[in-house]
Nucleic acid binder design. Structure first.
Length: 81
DNA sequence: GTTGAGCGT
């Protein structure tokens, strides 16, 4: 299940994101979108979870919570299209 | 050396 995470702290790393989601389920991979040129965080990222139920719980649980001191938004990710 | 809605090199 692809999960979209936004309003991240510009200092939040993928490991912090992964650890945050691993507390609610198994995380297959986590990625924070950063600028291609400056490598600065765009403020949002993606988390991939092999279990859909754990993913939904992670979304419902981690949504509107604090990460690195910033309230984050967790939703299902859209296909890149 | 910043900012704060939004969907990926």
């Amino acid at each position: 299940m692809n999960i979209f995470v936004a309003k991240l702290n510009y200092a939040t790393s993928e490991d912090a994101l992964r650890q945050a989601f691993e507390e609610f389920g198994t995380v297959d991979s986590a990625k924070v979108i950063m600028d291609r040129d400056t490598q600065r965080s765009k403020g949002f990222g993606f988390v991939e979870m092999p279990n859909d139920d754990e993913g939904n719980q992670a979304i419902s649980s981690l949504n509107d919570t604090e990460l690195d001191g910033r309230t984050i938004v967790v939703k299902k990710a859209n296909p890149r299209g």
